[in-house]
Design a binder for these strands. Sequence first.
DNA 1: CCGGATCAGTTGTACCTACAACCGAAGACC
DNA 2: GGTCTTCGGTTGTAGGTACAACTGATCCGG
Lengths: 165, 165
Amino acid sequence: MEPRWLDETEMAAWVRLVAVVELLPGVLDGQLRRDAGLTHFDYHVLAMLSEAPERTLRMTELATRTNATLPRLSHVVRRLEERGLVERTPCPYDGRATDARLTQAGWDKVRETAPRHVATVREHVLDALTPEQVTQLAEIADAVLSRLDPDGRMAAAPGLPAAGR
Amino acid sequence: MEPRWLDETEMAAWVRLVAVVELLPGVLDGQLRRDAGLTHFDYHVLAMLSEAPERTLRMTELATRTNATLPRLSHVVRRLEERGLVERTPCPYDGRATDARLTQAGWDKVRETAPRHVATVREHVLDALTPEQVTQLAEIADAVLSRLDPDGRMAAAPGLPAAGR
DNA sequence: CCGGATCAGTTGTACCTACAACCGAAGACC
DNA sequence: GGTCTTCGGTTGTAGGTACAACTGATCCGG
């Protein structure tokens, strides 16, 4: 069962991509943890809530928007709630569902954290690229995502048959 | 201290890159764990050793090649040693240093794991891209790496002054 | 040589994530 | 209306990573 091996160009791209995937989370986590006591994933969760109407989202919806599994999100939101940055309330229309809402403290946290975070993103990624490369990166990442998570489902479809997806 | 915010194109690129960085490790880890009982990082370590002369590398050198910190590598290598895939021996020329060597079992493990892993890499990343995009990806990732890890040092320089780097 | 600084590496602890098992609520079917 | 299945979410636990503290070996200046 020999696969098609990687040629030189493919290998170069792959090795560098792996390095980025390995290093980038550490850089982002480090900056956010030092400056705000937040994981990059924590920040992602707060940011998604801050952009939602009523600053509120169902847990499942929040999970898909943050590319996370539901168990992971559940733990993270519990911790954020203990810190007063988020509130959880049972959804009145569906007894199973839970709504997560950003508190005022959470909103303030996002507002004060965003500037330095954006600066870090620029410094370590975007400012290293030409405008053409930024466009190319968007297209490349989009293509890869279509393979990594064909339907943006993530948490929802653990072992679905191919049909209907 | 307001930063330059992200324009539409930059935001598109960034959001997608974050999604890739969030999802890709899970896909790689999942495949390797199911098929070989290895983390992606474990595999990376074994692969680097398998390409080295004598299948042997100093811990520090191995750390830089795998983009890891030394404490992390130390834990991982200990586990791999307990499984008989790697051997550690004190370096005779420098009493501080430790050499890590791939055992025969470790070599066999890499040989039998590589094909399916390469297939996964193709399926989820490279085959989603045109040849031009693969080239672009290599250049983009290279540019980003120059910011993430200016000297490929990683573990070596925790708080070095800028001069001399 | 001899003491301080640095280096290579290990260990311990705290935290985060993945996975699996679980629970109650909502539909589906007859 | 009673069971079966699915859905939305939480909890417990095992395992991996980060960070800091530590050990012993080497190097450097006097």
